[in-house]
Simulated assay, not measured.
Amino acid sequence: MSTPPQQPESTPEPIDPQPPAAPSSAPPPSGQQAPAVPPQPTAYPYPNPQSPLPQNPYAQPAVSPQVNPYATQPGYGYPPPAGPPATGRNTAGRAVLWAVVGAVVASAAWAAGLFLTGGFGTSADLRGYRAPGNLCAGADYSSFKAEYPVDDSAPTKNAMKDPALDESSCSLSLKKTSTSYGDAYLTLQLDLHKKTDPAPEFTATWKNYGDSHTDYDVTPVHGIGDEAYLVTQDTSNGSTTSGSRYATLAVRDGWTTFTMYYSAYFSSYDSDTDPPSLADVTGWLKTDTRSTLQQLKG
């Protein structure tokens, strides 16, 4: 009986009794600094995507987002998104308070606008005057009849009505005889200012008429309206055949203004009589202006 051949014995590999210890994540003992772990070599030729890139010396520094200091200020940026409606007694009280304040401010602005534009209907102080369509028929100039007895058969009359101003005017020739030309002329105009008070401009115009027009005399007249001015000029220098005489009485009564204007040119005057003096003319203007203003009321 043959003996089977023996297998050669395999030599066991040496076993390291203690495998290398894995790096511990536990913190080092107090007072000791953890040893630095050297970078591990890698076959990847590019930087680790998770590792920071090297700093570019030419790159602009990153700008961190800044908070817009005006974003929450009134008048800047966009309003913040509306949050849930506020509730509570204090919030409701504030809402009611602001609503009342807003209503008061709006009412004050509305009232001021109406006052400035005459919307209340009482700011235009017209003193009851009405502007007729034919002022030639509605005015009184009878004081001039003794000097000029012939009526003008075709006087010029105009009228205008507007929400801001009503106006009536009349121009006529004063004649001593039945000639084709007038010996003198009379013009009347009534203005009802319904939106603006004419007082400042009226005073500036007529009180200072002598400053803006050469050789005119200005005299205040009392007892007619709120204020009145008589403006006169005589260029005849004592002659009865050359020169001229002018006289205007301008009156303001509230927001109503009225003027009566007389003019005479001696070159066209009737040579048989002398023209009336300025004293006579101004007296006629005052008398007929008072009468006309009374007729134009109501």
Results as ranks from 00 to 15, higher is better:
P4N: 14
P5F: 11
Q7V: 14
P8H: 14
E9Y: 11
S10H: 13
E13L: 04
I15H: 07
D16H: 09
A21D: 06
A22E: 07
S24F: 14
P29D: 09
Q33G: 13
V37C: 10
P38F: 07
T42E: 09
A43P: 12
P47T: 14
N48M: 00
P49G: 06
Q50T: 06
L53G: 01
N56G: 05
N56T: 04
V63P: 01
S64P: 07
P69H: 10
P69Y: 08
Q73N: 07
Q73V: 08
P74A: 15
P80W: 03
P81K: 09
A82W: 07
G83T: 14
G83P: 10
T87P: 04
G88W: 14
N90V: 14
A95K: 13
V100W: 12
V101D: 09
A103W: 03
V104I: 13
V104G: 07
V104M: 11
V105R: 05
V105M: 10
V105A: 12
A106I: 09
A109W: 11
W110K: 10
A111E: 06
F115K: 13
L116D: 12
T117A: 15
G118P: 05
G119V: 12
G119S: 12
G121D: 09
G128R: 03
A131F: 01
A131Q: 01
G133Q: 12
G133I: 04
A137N: 05
A139C: 08
A139E: 00
S142R: 06
S142L: 04
S143D: 04
S143M: 05
S143A: 15
A146C: 02
P149D: 06
D152G: 02
D152Y: 00
D152I: 00
A154P: 07
A154C: 14
T156G: 03
N158T: 02
A159Q: 02
E167F: 06
K175Y: 09
A184G: 04
L186Y: 02
L186H: 05
T187K: 02
K194S: 03
K194E: 01
K194Q: 06
A199D: 08
A199G: 11
E201I: 05
E201C: 03
A204D: 11
K207L: 06
K207D: 05
K207Q: 13
D211V: 12
D211M: 12
H213A: 05
H213L: 02
T219L: 04
T219E: 10
P220L: 06
P220Y: 10
V221K: 03
E227I: 13
A228D: 02
V231E: 01
T232S: 04
T232E: 02
T235C: 09
T240W: 05
T241L: 07
T241D: 11
G243M: 09
S244D: 07
Y246A: 08
L249E: 00
L249Q: 03
D253E: 08
W255H: 15
W255E: 06
T259W: 01
T259M: 00
Y262A: 00
S263Q: 11
A264D: 12
F266M: 13
Y269C: 01
Y269F: 08
D272T: 15
S277R: 04
S277A: 05
L278D: 04
W284G: 00
W284I: 00
L285Y: 01
T287L: 00
D288T: 01
R290G: 05
R290V: 05
T292P: 04
L293D: 02
Q294C: 00
G298P: 05
G298W: 09
G298T: 11
